[in-house]
Amino acid sequence: MLEIKGLEVKLEDEDKQILKGVDLTIEAGKVHAIMGPNGSGKSTLSYVLSGKDGYEVTGGSADLEGEDLLDMEPEERAAAGLFLAFQYPVEIPGVGNMTFLRTAVNAQRKARGEDELSAGEFLKVVREKAKDLKIDADMLKRPVNVGFSGGEKKRNEILQMAMLEPKMCILDETDSGLDVDAMKLVAEGVNALRSEGRSFLVITHYQRLLDHIKPDVVHIMANGRIVKTGGPELALEVENNGYADILSEVA
């Protein structure tokens, strides 16, 4: 599904190398987790894959189902099936959540040469999916993320994911700022989307999210590289011993 080879990235504004050769392959239907200390490059990886400005790729490649992601505009990557759940979802006053969702869904359908959904069809689907995530009609009507609590914002991210039905989902610290109940709700939303044709990359600091979204593979990232890869037990090791042991081991 996603194949990253030797990816090297630096910040455009300053001469600072963030990613120093990331290799990562995620097969279809699998859930991979990336853990790592602050500043290891986890969020940068998610931004570079989704096409945010401000980063310069200095080497390597990233393909989604054989297509070169790095050559596409952010919206083309989305239409190709990539989705990033933001760590800090952006507030957009004056644009209704529903309008935003419908614009996004139809823009992607159009880009893929599919018919746009009618207002009625769209409403039916969105109501159904919103219900599962305990998103009420009021939240759908309100401007995008404006006045939403931390938990509501993250649930709204998962609703977008559910509506857009991407192939490759990246969750950037989706657990940050969530209490235990909110985290469970979000994890249930994600788990409901797990399928053979859909892969996940879950970026997190903590093991606890991985109790709810069970990964197939866990990677440890440090200093711009993936330094260790293992099964779910690797996340437990981090939880118990911190990163220091692993980092000294691979140093």
């Binding site: 096409g51 505009e73 919206e75 933001f86 979802p89 996004a104 869904v105 823009a107 880009a111």
Partner: peptide, 28 residues
Amino acid sequence: EDALFYLQSRGVPANIATDLLTLSFLAE
């Protein structure tokens, strides 16, 4: 820029995203 990227990352082309953000600006 952050709002623009957010919309683009959902598949909304830059020109349509700019229109949406323009309406958002005028909404008040």
